[in-house]
Write a protein that binds this DNA or RNA. Structure first.
Lengths: 223, 223
DNA sequence: CTACTAAACTGAACGCGTTCAGTAAGGCGC
DNA sequence: GCGCCTTACTGAACGCGTTCAGTTTAGTAG
């Protein structure tokens, strides 16, 4: 039993790593399922025995990445950064650094907006991964002494996650050398984002904050 | 010559309208090129003689829509709205109203973020249409007596266009009855957007505005 | 009317993701 | 040893978007 499932696990891992290597070398779309099977030394059907679809291979990569990233992100957050901005910067650059060798693969993940498409970052299939990812922003916020406004606080992790997705989306399609524009974008936008969050705590800002919270609840809330 | 090209034009129009009807009835993905050809009474190859791909059919629809929409939008803008917010509201609701029968088709257009994909709203293929669309926001802004800050003003049409795309994206996947959530979202977000634009003219806001303009120039500008 | 040309088509074939009826192979009770 | 079930795998076949070497057809020059 154990040997049997162990061999199966090896085959699964072999197919996945072969697929990821090919995706990395020649891109997601250029790589065919037949090629993956041939390179892994199995029949075409075997890939479908372990992975429901070509997309599922990418999703498996995404899940694996998220698992590998979590200790890295925890370590980064454990460092004593001076404020939220520094923590967010560390979080996002760590992620970009981690994904750099697989940037083209990530583009397969970021390519779809349709929440019905399994590869969409908003899909049901990627829900578990997304929620864990949002958690890391929760932690980045929690590390602060300051209390965020009670009405806004529950939404902040999701808002920051969306911000991060925007950065990653830009990065994935950034043609400038070493994706330099993305980093410029990050340097310019992060201060604005954190400043806005700070400012939102001022009593003066209550009316605008209330509008914003209503907006967020329309987006994420029930009908 | 004229009769010949005229017949060709008729065939082209027949294929396009057949395709759009089928897309509307059963969705973009469910509809096959063979079905379109059969329904239009031509061979499969004929569809590819007139349209480079299945996507190109959607792009043709998009181009046609933009042409039909322009006089409608001009008429809407000609009405005496009391402010920018009212004009934007009229602009966006007119567009949603126009696209309502083809909402599922529009989802094919909004589904891709990849600027390399022809159906992406950011693609080279849809550039001409996008630029005309952005123009309508230019006009909505120009109708105002007030002068917008010189540094920000050139970016405002593109910013409003992105805002509109966000609304449309939400609308396309909005499952609530009659897409009521989208309209709620519009009611909640439009005041914030226009308020922010108003506030940006205050001298007090110069530093934040400068940051924002730099951000926009990083996004849209050259390397 | 005829020969020629370019535009307007045709449909078989290709490559792809995916499916599925079938086959091998290991463990288990007897 | 032998039957039997479950897991692991096979590869032919399907449906799809797309391509392209051909064929028809409409107009044109002689």
């Amino acid at each position: 039993m154990t040997t049997k499932t162990q061999k199966a696990e090896e085959t699964r891992a072999l197919i996945l790593s072969t697929a990821l290597a090919l995706f990395r070398e020649q891109g997601f779309e250029k790589t065919t399922m037949r090629e993956i099977a041939a390179e892994a030394g199995v029949a075409l059907g075997a890939t479908y025995y372990y992975f429901a679809s070509k997309d599922a291979l990418v999703l498996a990569f995404y899940a694996q990445s998220q698992m590998e990233l979590e200790p890295l992100l925890a370590e980064v957050l454990a460092r004593k950064h001076k404020n939220l901005q520094a923590r967010l910067h560390a979080l996002i650059t760590t992620k970009l650094e981690y994904f750099r060798p697989n940037r083209s693969l990530l583009s397969a993940l970021a390519a779809h907006t349709n929440p019905g498409h399994s590869l969409s970052p908003f899909s049901e299939d990627s829900r578990a991964i997304r929620e864990r990812d949002i958690q890391s922003f929760q932690q980045a916020l929690d590390a602060d002494k300051v209390k965020y406004p009670a009405d806004l606080a529950p939404h902040l992790p999701a808002v920051l996650w969306i911000y991060q997705m925007g950065i990653i989306l830009y990065w994935v399609y950034d043609q400038s050398p070493s994706q330099r524009r993305t980093f410029k974008l990050l340097e310019k936008s992060l201060p604005i984002v954190t400043r806005l969050i700070q400012v939102s705590t001022l009593p003066l800002m209550k009316p605008l904050r209330k509008l914003t919270v209503e907006l967020l609840e329309t987006i994420y809330g029930p009908d």
